[in-house]
Amino acid sequence: MAGAGPGRSVDYALTLLRRLPRITLGNLKGNKEQKKKHNYSRGQDGGSDRGYPEQAKKGSQPPLGFAGGSNPYYTRHPVEWYYRGHELRRQYPPYSLFSLQRNIDMGIIDPAYPIDLVQLCNTKLYHIDPLQRHFGVNLTEEGMHMFKAKINLEVQWTTESVIAAVERNGGTITLAYFDPACLNAMHDTRSFFARGVPIPRRALPPENCLELYSNPKMRGYLADPAAVSLARVELAQKFGYNLPDVTKDPDYEMLIKRKDPRQCFYDLEPGWVVNLKDRTILKPADEVIRQYYRS
């Protein structure tokens, strides 16, 4: 082969040609033809001046950025409906089982207590922003096979596989809805309590997700507890694992601890005010207020 210099690209091309089909009259192809020059319009009408090189000299060019035509810009392009209502949809920032297991292993999350959105946000390793229509955590399947913790979990969105991964280890999981006012209190508890406002009363889920949050198969928090127990067994049979008996578990009390459908913090009721400075809790005494916050 030729040495250094101009021969190298030639060698490459000819080597490439060896593996290609034979060059014949049928597969020849030239370079792209040069673009045809602009034909000047002739005759009585003479065409328009637009697009001629002279036009720039004449100064009859429309100003830069000018969009002519009688069709307004916003009706010119077809609508892309697949983004319709995107600003109204609920968003669930993901969090993986792998991260959860890792944070438990590192001692950042304590599995001896129920784990909910408050616990996750308090790690400062997971963030949601209720102003961006984040409605809680989406627990994903990543790390599902190495998940070993026995926990009482409360998330806002998940899949069947994740539920199976949690329950296989003897844990429990709940799918719970929180309205933006509660999320605002839960995602940053310190600044919320510092404001000195009462803990909000948790709203019921909106119509389009009511079915999800009352579905025992998804461990909805509004589902019938008996139906949930049955669904736990069904899921164990579907995925083929032995469901540990929670009732005989030493942490039984912790594992079955649930929030009230109107409650957003464990052990704190709506209407209460937490005074961080005096480290006290103020409870409403007025009967009207108590009636309002009642479940």
């Binding site: 030729a2 030639v10 060698d11 000819l14 040609l17 060059i23 020849l28 192809k29 030239g30 370079n31």
Partner: peptide
């Protein structure tokens, strides 16, 4: 001779000739 039997195979030049 490499200038004749190892020229860069310009397909477009061959095509021009055939055309």
């Amino acid at each position: 001779h490499p200038d004749i039997f190892a020229e860069f195979p310009r397909i477009d030049v061959i095509h021009e000739n055939v055309k």
